[in-house]
Structures are given as structure tokens and as C-alpha cells.
């Protein structure tokens, strides 16, 4: 029996043959102990995802209500200002994506900030788990928390502003892509912030930016603010979603927007993974 082969771990490759007679206990006279297998990327990601999702039952549901009511409140507020047309589409799309920004950016930044400050990262750092599994698993779970809130907001908004409901299927792409971009950003902020309060602050600011720049119609903004708006990954999710409310959507533009979301998502998750490695082995 060697350390490499826990019962049932048949699929795991043994990276180095055990020296004859070496016990699991290690070096002995036969050389260095055999290293136990690493956890593989996808199974570990699944385990982290499942664990994070289970936290929702304990800790996240009240916050999800807050996120949803915030978006509903904003839409009701804007109902008095906005009559319809492009502005109404922007308000509904912006409010829906705001739920994603609240949970994936703000709450994930707080979670990783607190985990790092309290030494909780040591737990993951002393397990043979790929950094990407921890970051992507947590990001995917936080993006998943947003699904009910986004759906409620989008449907309520469409009804409120008399927009067609037929295009809502695009949320199947908008939530994961905007979720990836914002969750990656949130995780990176939380892991890189020197203090947890700063992580919370950055998360809040990011969410405020998503709120102001996503919900308010872009037309009347000064040029500088429009540039900032272009830099924010949530903007592309908002625009992709807003376009699908049009009578004859420009699907090419929708795809382009979603492509930008996806590219930013890959980049921000890669950044978050690097940030995790850095934070775990400080």
C-alpha cells in the first residue's frame, strides 16, 4: 500500500512508482516518500462549487433578496423618469445585470478579502488543489446565486416597461459571461487588497459604478464617463441584453458584446487565479 492509492482513486495517475517496500509513511531508507496525487481540475472545481453553493442556504439568501429589491426599486424609480424606447431597455438590462454585479463582484470581493485576512486560505493552500479550481468554483457558485434575482428583475422590468419577454433567453449567455467577468474581478480585488475593508470598499465601488454606468442611459454622459463605462465589463452584458428587447435585434452586435464579456471574463478569471496563488503563498 502506498499513499498514492486511496481506495477508489483508480482514475488518478500515480506519478512515480513507489520504491519497493516503501510504506506510506514515507522516506524510509528507500528515498523520498511518494507524493499523493493532486486533485484534478474539474472534480476539484465541482467540489468547491458544491460547497460554495451550500453556503448560500446559510448565508447568502438574505443578501440575494437585498440585491433583487435594490434592482426592483431602481426600476420603479426610473419608471417615473423614463417613458420607453432605448432608455427603458437600458434601465431593465442595467438593473438585471446589477444583480450580477452585486453578488459576483461585491460579495465575492468581500468573501475572498475576509478569507485571506482570517487565514482561511491556508486551508486550501495546504490541499493539492489547482488554484483555478478554487477561484473558478467560487466564482461559478456566486454567479449561480444571481440567477433567481436576475430572472425576477428581468421579468418584472419587462412587464413594468412593457418590453417584449421573448428575448429573455439571452440571459442564458449574459449571466454566465457577465458573471465570469465580474466574479473574476471581485475575486481578484478580494485576494489582492491588503486589508479586508479595502476589498469591501473596492467591491462596493465596483458595484456603484455598475449601477450608475449601467442603469443610466449612456447618451447624456460626458465623454470621460463614457470611456469609464466602456472599461467596465458589466457594460457589455447590459448592452447585449438591452439589444434583445428591440423589435429586430442586431444579433451580430449582441454576439460582439457577449464576446467582449467572455474575453474580459477569461482575463479576469486568469488574474484572479494568479492573485489566489500569490495570496496563498505569501
Amino acid at each position: 500500500m502506498v499513499v498514492d492509492a486511496p481506495p477508489g482513486a483508480g482514475a488518478v495517475t500515480v506519478e512515480r512508482a513507489a520504491p519497493a517496500g516503501a510504506r506510506g509513511a514515507g522516506a524510509g531508507v528507500n528515498g523520498p516518500a511518494v507524493l499523493a496525487p493532486r486533485a484534478r481540475l474539474w472534480p476539484a472545481l465541482g467540489a468547491v462549487y458544491r460547497a460554495q453553493l451550500s453556503r448560500a442556504r446559510v448565508a447568502r439568501i438574505p443578501l440575494l433578496f437585498v440585491a433583487t429589491f435594490q434592482s426592483l426599486g431602481i426600476m420603479i424609480l426610473m419608471r417615473g423618469v423614463v417613458d420607453g424606447g432605448a432608455e427603458a431597455r437600458a434601465v431593465v438590462a442595467g438593473s438585471s445585470v446589477l444583480v450580477v454585479a452585486f453578488v459576483a463582484l461585491n460579495l465575492l470581493a468581500q468573501y475572498f478579502g475576509q478569507l485571506r485576512a482570517s487565514g482561511g486560505l491556508d486551508h486550501y493552500a495546504t490541499l493539492p488543489v489547482p488554484a483555478a479550481s478554487v477561484v473558478l468554483g467560487a466564482a461559478a457558485a456566486y454567479a449561480s446565486f444571481t440567477v433567481p434575482g436576475v430572472l425576477v428583475t428581468a421579468v418584472a422590468g419587462s412587464v413594468l416597461f412593457q418590453l417584449p419577454l421573448g428575448g429573455l433567453w439571452v440571459l442564458v449567455a449574459v449571466i454566465p459571461l457577465a458573471g465570469a467577468a465580474l466574479a473574476g474581478l471581485g475575486a481578484a480585488l478580494g485576494l489582492l487588497a491588503p486589508r479586508p475593508e479595502l476589498a469591501t470598499l473596492c467591491g462596493q465601488l465596483g458595484m456603484s459604478a455598475a449601477l450608475l454606468l449601467g442603469v443610466l442611459p449612456a447618451g447624456g454622459m460626458p465623454l470621460v464617463v463614457q470611456w469609464v463605462r466602456d472599461l467596465l465589463p458589466s457594460t457589455y452584458g447590459v448592452e447585449a441584453f438591452a439589444r434583445t428587447f428591440e423589435a429586430r435585434p442586431d444579433w451580430g452586435a449582441v454576439l460582439l458584446d457577449l464576446g467582449v464579456c467572455a474575453a474580459v471574463g477569461v482575463l479576469s478569471l486568469a488574474l484572479a487565479t494568479r492573485a489566489y496563488r500569490w495570496a496563498a503563498t505569501r
Partner: peptide
């Protein structure tokens, strides 16, 4: 370690199971 913050919100069973999975064990 001295800190349990990575596991605090999990149930006892899931904390052990997840840790085992991340230690490379199959489900």
C-alpha cells in the same frame, strides 16, 4: 491550522467530504 473560516459555513459532513475531494479522492 488555527483558523476554520474556510469551512465555517459548511456542514460538518460537507466540510470533511469537500476536503477529501480536494485531497484528490474520487467522490
Amino acid at each position: 491550522g488555527q483558523e476554520s473560516s474556510a469551512l465555517d459555513e459548511l456542514t460538518v459532513g460537507l466540510a470533511a467530504e469537500t476536503t477529501a475531494r480536494l485531497r484528490g479522492l474520487e467522490t
